[in-house]
Write a protein that binds this DNA or RNA. Structure first.
Lengths: 344, 344
DNA sequence: GTTAGCACTCATAGACATCGAGTGCTAAAT
DNA sequence: ATTTAGCACTCGATGTCTATGAGTGCTAAC
């Protein structure tokens, strides 16, 4: 196990490196207030810390740099709690300043503020729509063959899709069918719609509508769209300001990861544990994220977890500050959203 | 005016520079097939071309590089027509392969294919919704205070917004009002809605609904949302592969322009002349686009111009190829969309 | 156990030489 | 009157060398 002195040294090294971005040497360390012993002692301790894998040298006679293991230990045990300034808090509050009742806009604004506050890239995974409950189905004919199907959920989310209407269905049938669907399906979570249609609604339709089967297929396909949570980004270009990304290749690799939304989305989806989750460097399975750390938190309405907010930065990230900010934003977001949407 | 020989030299210089990205010297030129005279002659001609401002040196004894004036002349007079390969054409056709009737998806796919084909960044300005005609208005109550207002247009586009309902309005009033709105407003272009409401619908409402004024305000505000055309991007990271952007600062400036969507959107809006429009380097008024060229074309349904497709690349762009591709995509897009939507 | 001292390492930066692609100019060739 | 060969010159790029200095590990003294 590490001695107290080793822990102190590890902490100071990481703190200093996060601040400066430069390898930290024994002399620099010995000048710090917290450090009461000489550079030679530090050198000995650093040699041990290196042997244990917590720090690394960039070359034989360079100062030390935290390894991923070092960051991991730091994040798990050595974080010094941060206090947010009044400005920071004001900015966070400003997410909810305008009484915008649209979830998406609040979420988008959160992403923007988050990147503002941290100077890193932020990602917010919008509310999962699939658990929303159906409020209303509408089918609005556009012309003979096509119509717009609209689904409204209890949170006010609207999904829509253009569908083609089988020629065998006439307008009055269509209307009748929509009525039946609404009677039977309101309150059902979107994710269960398709199931419910085949199990419970199909035979009702059969009783009332000619050629119901051609339509049934169309409808169930339409309702089957499991809309993915939208991703909102903030400060995509902030990465470019980080000194570790002065190499164009590194920029490209990380930018490509971000733009390649699908994989990144799946990665975020996995980060759905309550509380703060930190993955450092190669812990991120995604190719191209080796030099990055990802910190995530979740937000919810009442007990129901809604989505994820995240900050992406270099492994040399201000973990303390970012974690504090994420915690705060997540909790404020949850509080406000619960207030708005709880009583439906 | 330029002599034929000067034009030839200018063209070959620009062609070669676009291909290689390297300053072109007299010796390199003299080895080209098209060039029958010696390097010394070329040097004399190049000195003249430089004096006239069509080409520049990067330093005293370097080869020549096209100036913006040179590119401008090249684009206006020297483009050698390109033929698209079968693969290129197949890719363009693939935009319409799946019978996706949703305009937005087609447009998004166009952006992706466009960046695929060119290796630059593409931007497609989605169909302008404001000229669409109203097909139906719906207001769906969510709970006591809020409701979703939904507007469907004749092209199948759906706009929605959460609104708060004044306490003084009861559900049956709401329904009555929606009916009135639909009776009076169907077929009206979205852009004219607000006007029409105040001029023609307000007094009808007054006759039928108590407290109509508190609701009128809400409604007209809602309908007033002039939804901006959406921008779809393709290949945002393609810029990073361009050798002229190996400087992180240049990358940052251009990325910031793109991410800062608003200004860029306004810029694109101005590019609404029929046909191909090319702006080179500083001709682009936007700060940060000095090293870029933008090529745009428009697409339409029937006679009605719908939106803009664009390719953004370094000033050293393959103008010929990009223009050919843009022309093709724009015309295919127009043809297909006209086919789909003409007969409404 | 701690620290002073010292030899050693290596990235970084500046000075300097070399190379080569390119130029402009002049004088000869066409 | 053009065109071209020849030549001196420029300057970015590349490579070598040398100092500098921040850093290390190790040893011996405290």
């Amino acid at each position: 196990m590490l001695t107290d002195r080793q822990l102190l040294i590890l902490q100071v090294i990481i703190d200093d490196f996060i601040r400066s971005g430069q390898p930290v040497g024994s002399r620099t360390l010995s000048k710090k207030e917290e450090i009461t012993f000489s550079s030679a002692t530090i050198r000995n301790e650093m040699a041990d810390l290196e042997e244990l894998g917590y720090i690394e040298k960039t070359h034989v006679s360079s100062g030390r740099v935290p390894s991923e293991k070092g960051y991991r230990y730091y994040v798990d045990h050595l974080l010094s709690p941060q206090r947010l300034t009044h400005e920071d808090i004001a900015k966070i509050k400003s997410i909810f300043a305008e009484r915008i009742y649209e979830l998406e806009k609040v979420v988008q604004k959160s992403a923007q503020i988050l990147s503002d506050l941290t100077n890193y890239t932020s990602i917010v995974l919008g509310p999962a729509v699939k658990d929303n409950k159906l409020k209303q189905i509408q089918i609005i004919p556009l012309n003979k063959e096509t119509a717009v199907a609209i689904i409204v959920t209890d949170t006010g989310h609207v999904e829509n899709r253009v569908i083609t209407i089988p020629a065998s269905i006439n307008p009055s049938d269509l209307e009748k069918m929509v009525n039946i669907l609404n009677e039977r399906l309101i309150g059902v979570p979107l994710v269960d719609l398709k199931d419910k249609i085949y199990k419970e609604v199909a035979n009702v339709l059969r009783a009332h509508i000619r050629n119901y089967d051609s339509m049934l297929k169309t409808i169930s396909d339409t309702l089957d769209l499991q809309p993915a949570e939208k991703m909102f980004f903030g400060g995509k270009t902030n990465m470019l300001s980080q000194p570790e990304f002065n190499d164009i290749e590194k920029v490209r690799s990380i930018m490509t990861v971000i733009e390649q939304e699908k994989d990144f989305y799946n990665l975020l989806r996995k980060h759905n544990k309550q509380g703060i989750q930190v993955t450092i460097g190669k812990e991120n399975q995604l190719r191209g994220m080796e030099n990055c750390s990802l910190i995530t938190a979740t937000y919810s309405v009442g007990e129901k977890q809604l989505g994820t907010i995240a900050v992406l930065g270099p492994t040399r990230m201000e973990y303390s500050r970012v974690i504090t900010i994420l915690n705060r934003v997540a909790s404020d977001l949850s509080t406000v959203l619960t207030q708005w949407y709880q009583n439906n």
